[in-house]
Nucleic acid binder design. Sequence first.
DNA 1: TGATTACTTAACCATATGGTTGAACATAAA
DNA 2: TTTATGTTCAACCATATGGTTAAGTAATCA
Lengths: 110, 110
Amino acid sequence: MVEHKSQADLVFHALSDPTRRMMVERLSQRPLTVSELAEPLAMSMAGVSKHVGVLEKAGIVARHKRGRERVCTLQPDSLLAARDWVERYAQFWSERLDALDTALKEDGDE
Amino acid sequence: MVEHKSQADLVFHALSDPTRRMMVERLSQRPLTVSELAEPLAMSMAGVSKHVGVLEKAGIVARHKRGRERVCTLQPDSLLAARDWVERYAQFWSERLDALDTALKEDGDE
DNA sequence: TGATTACTTAACCATATGGTTGAACATAAA
DNA sequence: TTTATGTTCAACCATATGGTTAAGTAATCA
C-alpha cells in the first residue's frame, strides 16, 4: 500500500476515466442523486457508487443524504487546483513564443 | 484489452503520477534528455523510459534523437486541451454564484 | 575494431483499478 | 410491521499499472 496519495494524484486519476468525466459534466448542470448518475450507465449501482467514491475522495464531489437518497454536488476547489496546475505548465509554450517574438523584434532593431 | 483510450483519458492518466508531473514541471523550463530526466529519480532508466513513453502517448512530450541521446520537449496542445476541459467544468460554481447574485438583486428590486 | 554510453524492449512481479455479485443497512411506503 | 427502494460494503475477478532485471540496439569514444 502506498502511504497516501497527493490531492493532485487523486484529482487527475479521478478525471482519467470517461465514466467519471461524464458524471462531472452532468453534475456541472445540477446536483444529482447516485441513481440519477447511474441512469445512463450500463453498470451496476455498486459500480456507480465506487466511481462516485473516487470523485469524492478526490474532493471533486460531495455526497449528502436526503431521505434514502444521496445527492451529489460538484465541489469547485479541487477542480480549480487541477486547472491551475495544468494552466501553469501549459502556458510555457506561448511564453516562449512571446520571448521569441520579442527577441526577433529586438534583433530587427539592431 | 480496451479498444483505444481517448486523448483525455491518456492525458489525465499521465498527469496522475507524481514522477510524471515532476517531469512535466522540469520540461517546462527547458528540453531534457531521458538521462537528465532520470537523474533526480531513484529509479532504473527502463522505468524512466516507460514514464516518458506514457507522457509521449498522451501527446504531452515528444522525443527526438540527438546522437545517442533522446531529447524530450513539452508539447502544449494536449495540456491546453486538458486545461480547457477542467476550466469548463471548474467554472460552474462562480457562474452559479453570479446567478445567485443576480437573483438576489432582482429579488431586492421587487 | 572493441568498449562504453544512452537508451528501448521484453519478460516478469506485486499491487491498483474497474467491474461484478450478494448481503447489509437505512429510509419510505403499504 | 412488512416490504420495497436507494445505496453502500465486502469479497472476488480480470486486466492495467509501476516497478524491476536482463538483453538488445545504436551512436560515440579509444
